[in-house]
Amino acid sequence: MNSLTTYIIISIVLFLLGLLAMMTRKNAISVLMGVELILNSAGLAFVAFGRFVAGNLDGQTAALFIIIVAAAEAAVALAVFLNYYRLKATAEVDKADALRG
């Protein structure tokens, strides 16, 4: 049970769920949640490969940097969403079409 395949399947499932959230959700915050799920799945895959294939701590370090980048990304994304909400009074991603040609 505690094998590479188990963790990679969990990681794939998390990745696909996050991708589904990004594709089907209307609310920008929900899209951000999908991105966070995808980043988590990538971290899980990194740690699993680092443990069962590489046998060193490179995977864990990569996952640590993923967490750092996710924190920065969440802060900036939410600041953008707040501004967008102030502008449009909605958080729907479909309504952000001001730059459409």
Binding site: I29, E36, A75, L78, F81, L82, A91
Partner: peptide, 12 residues
């Protein structure tokens, strides 16, 4: 991050 997200939900 989760606290930020919940703040975002409440604020938007």
């Amino acid at each position: 991050i989760l606290t930020l997200v919940i703040f975002g939900v409440f604020l938007t």
